[in-house]
Design a protein around this nucleic acid. Structure first.
Lengths: 243, 243
DNA sequence: CCTTTAAAGTCTGACGCCATACGTTTTCGC
DNA sequence: GCGAAAACGTATGGCGTCAGACTTTAAAGG
């Protein structure tokens, strides 16, 4: 009894976000660059457009861009055709990933993964209930495109499943996890640890379950897919933490 | 392909929270009072304590309290033993609930419910994998306490299950849903629509599945429990929207 | 080469929020 | 009844953010 009361209060009275708005914009853009959502040499929208999209003042955007320039994550050019351009060195992303991984606590990593599996599994189940033939084709097309880095492929696949599930919330959650954890879970570093791992074969099995309308199987396969990736990540984490 | 890229961007460039900090505090406290997390005549922490807990300045808390007083949701007394006290008329809560329900769009309601079922179902499944005998006793004790309003009982039950699942994230999500949707889903208004509904019997079945270590059954029963409540809410929603 | 255009750079007054300090009110405890 | 303590009420200077306006820069297009 006391538990639920105390815990509900923990939400009501939880601290507000301590970060300034400029700082929040910095974190947004830094994460997007570090995790590959914004690629090297890519041009950001203009200051005016960024301000409109983020719902902040242009001064705030400019403040954030100063910080990003100091981190050498963007460079800015004036004049027509100017603007801010991403500078994302590949080696920095790799170092950032290992650094990030070694900062994560194992219980925290497992808890995040449990949550992710719940969301992605539910999306797969709903997709099995709601997909039509066009949806299945689309999922297959997305999965057939193997031209990019693994975490991009994984993100595209799971996001397509969430879209087919017709749940805006689950799709949004999927994107959040892809941003927060996806780059770790599906990192190329992990691919070299165990060569026998074939995510595409697992995707095909999930897609077949969705096509067959078997929601429980689709969910179970999705959960296992994520749990497998987590175990590999845990293995890497242990090598980093106990040298 | 374009789908996942465009959608990832929608997260990166999504608008920041437009609400001022004072306004956010107002919303927090208004929701907590309206949904029964803070009860009539209950004393709020002092301004200084609220400021510390919310991580804001006292001026901001005072600003929020002015707004709450204008809404007649609190009254404030000076001096020793003074402070702000909740004023939560039962009729206003009922009106607020119907008003809230008629504002919800049906697809939105279903989507939220799908997400809730995923979280609560996953919690039940993990609880079945991780519970020991003491945990089961605790769940049963929580469920045996029938002294309060239904939404309180439901919150306490599901939160206990999430606690037994040993997932901080799922517990936090559970609290969020209990705050956002729980008061609607388990409202006394709905209890009078269909007298045959017995949530405690459904809880006992879920608890038995958890005790038996049957994660899939525990999850399935939890999902059905929530889906049943949603259908009843949809029925009420239709009576409000199409008179 | 010149003009136009897009985009960054700079500035300004008003408002929200911060930390800090002090004053007033009311109850509690001796 | 008095003094102490808790708690609200008021005020202040500084910083972040806002909307809006104007200037400078550099590329694109004729």
């Amino acid at each position: 009894m006391g538990t639920s009361r105390a815990s509900a209060r923990s939400v009501v009275f939880a601290p507000l976000d301590p970060h300034s708005r400029a700082e929040t914009v910095v974190r947004r853009l830094t994460d997007a660059i570090t995790f590959g959502l914004l690629t090297d040499a890519e041009q950001l929208p203009s200051e005016t457009d960024l301000a409109a999209q983020f719902g902040v003042s242009r001064v705030t955007v400019r403040e954030a861009l100063v910080a990003l320039r100091q981190q050498n994550l963007v460079e800015t050019r004036r004049g027509r055709g100017g603007g801010s351009f991403v500078r994302a060195p590949a080696a920095a992303a790799d170092r950032s990933l290992r650094s990030r991984l070694s900062e994560l606590s194992l219980p925290n990593l497992r808890d995040t993964a449990d949550h992710y599996a719940a969301v992605a599994g539910a999306a797969a189940r709903l997709a099995a209930q709601r997909a039509d033939a066009d949806d299945i084709l689309r999922i297959e097309e997305v999965d057939a495109d193997v031209a990019g880095p693994p975490h991009r492929m994984e993100r595209a696949y799971h996001l397509e499943v969430a879209a087919v599930a017709q749940s805006a919330r689950l799709a949004r959650e999927e994107i959040r996890f892809a941003t927060e954890l996806g780059t770790l879970l599906w990192s190329p570093i992990l691919q070299s640890v165990d060569g026998a791992y074939d995510p595409h074969a697992e995707h095909r099995a999930i897609t077949a379950a969705i096509a067959a309308g078997d929601g429980d199987l689709a969910r179970g396969l999705t959960e296992k897919h994520i749990e497998t990736a987590v175990e590999r990540l845990v293995t890497l984490h242990l090598t980093l933490v106990e040298p």
